[in-house]
Amino acid sequence: MAAIYGYEVSSEYISFTRWSGELQITLTNISASDDIDGPVTFAFDMPYEVVPSTGSGFEVKNSGIATAHVEGTLPALPAQGSVTFVVNISSPNGTLSSIKLPTLFYINDRVVVTFRPNAPTGLRVTATTTSSISLVWNQAVATTFPIEEYIVYYDEALADTTEWKTITVQDTSATLTGLKPGTTYLFYVRAVDEQGGRSLSKDSALVNARTQSES
């Protein structure tokens, strides 16, 4: 079966007895640029037969049928977005186990394989002016696919609402321009691999710096 990259899935029971439980699943699109328009077919394999039914945010296609393969539909999956939903899981013989979680996940009949590059380290400021801040960081360590580029996120530290702006660079340094004088900014960096759905790393450490004040 073909694989699909650029996604991360987690699951846990948020309520549980040996007869029934609510299985919460979070699907995160960790791609830097790939959207999937809906409806999206999403499925998962359980390690034993259960009886699934529609919970919250996920329409189960094989509801009420004993099966180890649960399938349903989700809305679109925007790049860098996530969706959390609940599937009701029952056991016809009272043998439900809270530690026996889904083993494989599928999007549009392709098995989800998650590879993330490691987060960049050593983010630091090298220079400031009244309107710019220069940053440098250590090269991120690739896990499976080579690193293609980095996305630098920045915003004013004291902004009323956080609206991260971004620039994309291929090197391990960047200069942010057009900034306000005498203003403190926050920054972090994420790496993007060149294959695997252009998967994003997790965030680097958050740093801050202040532009110089005008004379």
Rank of each mutant, 00 (worst) to 15 (best):
Y5E: 05
Y5N: 00
G6T: 09
S10T: 14
F16T: 03
F16W: 15
S20E: 10
I25G: 00
L27R: 02
I30T: 04
D35H: 10
G38I: 08
V40T: 15
V40F: 04
F42G: 07
A43Y: 12
A43M: 13
A43I: 12
F44P: 12
M46L: 10
P47G: 13
Y48T: 04
V51D: 11
V51A: 05
V60S: 10
K61M: 13
A66M: 12
T67D: 03
A68R: 10
V70L: 06
V70E: 09
G72N: 12
G72I: 13
P78M: 09
T84V: 04
V87R: 09
N93W: 04
P102H: 14
T103M: 14
V111N: 01
F115S: 09
F115Q: 08
R124H: 15
V125R: 02
A127G: 11
A127Y: 09
T128G: 06
S132V: 09
S132Q: 13
S132L: 12
N138P: 01
V141K: 12
A142T: 00
Y150P: 07
Y150Q: 09
Y153H: 14
Y153K: 10
Y154I: 07
I167V: 15
A174G: 02
K180D: 12
Y188G: 00
V189Q: 07
A191L: 00
K202L: 07
K202I: 01
A205T: 14
Q212N: 11
Q212V: 10
